[in-house]
């Protein structure tokens, strides 16, 4: 896991998205050993109609992440290399999910089972399974 933190994921070409959800399904397989398009850290969103281009959203690993600043209990901690980590024990008790509404690109989702935000662990499966090379997955310099 430590090693993965040195990797970075970019959504480079969202306009190439075909709506196959390969990234989404891969993410839920990886993070939760299940197939569930609402328990993921990468999102394919329809914008009102399928006739509009899809939006592809993933964590941008901000240096000053909105979500971490919004967290009232400091459960979400910014990482020096960008992005966040979750201290799950601190997160309990929060009923407002400020972190989730704080993210401007809505890249953070709530796990409805655990009631914790779902954090991307940078495994790169989204990039691996995308047939149209929408993502860039590389080690940080």
């Amino acid at each position: 896991m430590k090693k993965a933190l040195r990797f970075h994921i970019d959504v480079l070409h969202p306009e190439r998205c075909i709506g196959c959800y390969s990234c989404v399904y891969a993410c839920s397989r990886h993070l939760f050993n299940t197939i569930d398009p609402s328990r993921v850290a990468v999102f394919v969103r329809l914008n009102g109609t399928i006739a509009n281009p899809f939006s592809v959203i993933a964590c941008r690993f901000c240096k000053s992440p909105e979500c971490a600043f919004a967290c009232p209990t400091k459960a979400l901690q910014p990482l020096p290399e960008g992005g966040i980590t979750l201290i799950a024990s601190r997160c309990e008790g929060c009923k407002t999910f400020d972190c989730i509404s704080a993210c401007a690109i809505e890249a953070l989702a709530l796990d409805r089972r655990t009631k914790l935000p779902i954090i991307c662990d940078r495994c790169g499966d989204c990039a691996k399974y995308c047939p149209h090379n929408i993502f860039r997955y590389e080690e940080m310099k």
Binding site: I18, G19, C20, Y21, Y25, P37, Y129, P131, H132
Partner: peptide, 12 residues
Amino acid sequence: RRKISCPGCPIA
């Protein structure tokens, strides 16, 4: 103009 897929199929 565009190709699309069914969810779960990478073919488009």
